[in-house]
């Protein structure tokens, strides 16, 4: 999707990156192959765990806090309260799932999955995937199209710089 606003385009590109990761995570944790934990020398699984670790450790948080500090207040200032409130709630939930998932990912990166760890990881990962995907769907439909009317080109450029600096 092409967005008129620079900041909308930036957030959209971030969404695409997250969707790609969530697709890989879903692929690895559902279906027949997900019945047992991946082997310790599975390079695709190692790469996925590394990317997921980076996402849980800070990438998603950067995206969420940027929206909460810069986008949602601007929407609420014009009286649009419902959608920012819901999106903020979803951020809190995603943070919560991420915090539970992170120690499992760290343990798995150090010494592979034990059977109970894998089962817990699989359930949490699928929960994270679904919540992330539906959250992105809401932002793509209800948030990003609003940004071009919410911020002029200059303000959008400043936000892009702020996003990169943070």
């Amino acid at each position: 999707m092409y967005h008129d606003s620079q900041i909308a385009q930036l957030l959209h590109d971030e969404h695409l990156r997250t969707i790609d990761l969530m697709n890989r995570l879903e692929e690895a944790t559902s279906g027949r192959r997900a019945k047992s934990a991946p082997a310790d020398d599975d390079t695709a699984a190692k790469l996925l765990l590394a990317d997921l670790h980076a996402e849980l450790q800070g990438t998603a948080e950067h995206h969420f806090s940027f929206e909460e500090e810069n986008i949602f207040p601007a929407l609420m200032a014009i009286g649009d309260v419902g959608i920012p409130t819901i999106l903020r709630q979803e951020h809190a939930l995603l943070r919560n799932v991420s915090e539970t998932l992170l120690p499992l990912v760290e343990r798995a990166r150090e010494g592979g999955f034990t059977e109970p760890d894998w089962l817990e990881f699989r359930d949490l990962a699928l929960d994270l995937v679904e919540r992330h995907i539906t959250h992105i769907q809401k932002e793509e439909m209800g948030l990003l199209p609003a940004l071009s009317s919410l911020f002029d080109a200059e303000a959008a450029s400043e936000l892009v710089i702020r996003y990169a600096e943070k």
């Binding site: 419902g82 409130t85 819901i86 709630q89 979803e90 939930l93 919560n96 929960d127 679904e130 919540r131 539906t134 769907q137 809401k138």
Partner: peptide
């Protein structure tokens, strides 16, 4: 989708997923 969206407004409970 809409039910899960509105359920997210409830602060006391983890909202159900769309699935």
């Amino acid at each position: 989708f809409l039910a899960s969206m509105h359920a997210a407004a409830n602060l006391k409970r983890r909202p159900p997923t769309v699935t």
